[in-house]
Design a protein around this nucleic acid. Sequence first.
DNA 1: TGTATGACTAAGA
DNA 2: ATCTTAGCCATAC
Length: 129
Amino acid sequence: MGEFNDAVFEQVKRIPRGKVSTYGQIARLIGRPRSARYVGWALRTNDQPVVIPCHRVVFKDGKLAEGYIFGGDGVQRKLLQDEGVVFVDDDHVDMDACLWNPAEDGLPGRPADIDWTREMDEGSKGERA
DNA sequence: TGTATGACTAAGA
DNA sequence: ATCTTAGCCATAC
């Protein structure tokens, strides 16, 4: 395994029930803002249902990954809905209401006024409008 | 060893 | 909304 994978799982496990995160958001949290793609790869190689709530990780636009491995089509959506996640249609989570804000759950040293819902790249990291 | 390949995302067409 | 391309990590062969 590697630090990258471990860091991914560490962050995914922090996603609270009823909320979702995105691949890109996880990537930024572990300091690899350009590696969103490999977050999915990490989860792929270690699907531990329940222990690691990877069903709470979705696309930035709220869409669910198509080739979800847990059990097939619709399973991920059902899991999320059971947790209280709201869907705007069959394939899209209501990101406006359900996107997890990492700065909200007592993370030390992280200003609460950073807008984590916005994409950031290396250059603008930590800056606010 | 080297290469191919993915549960992504932003930007441009 | 859909399609392409670049970016860049861990694995499988």
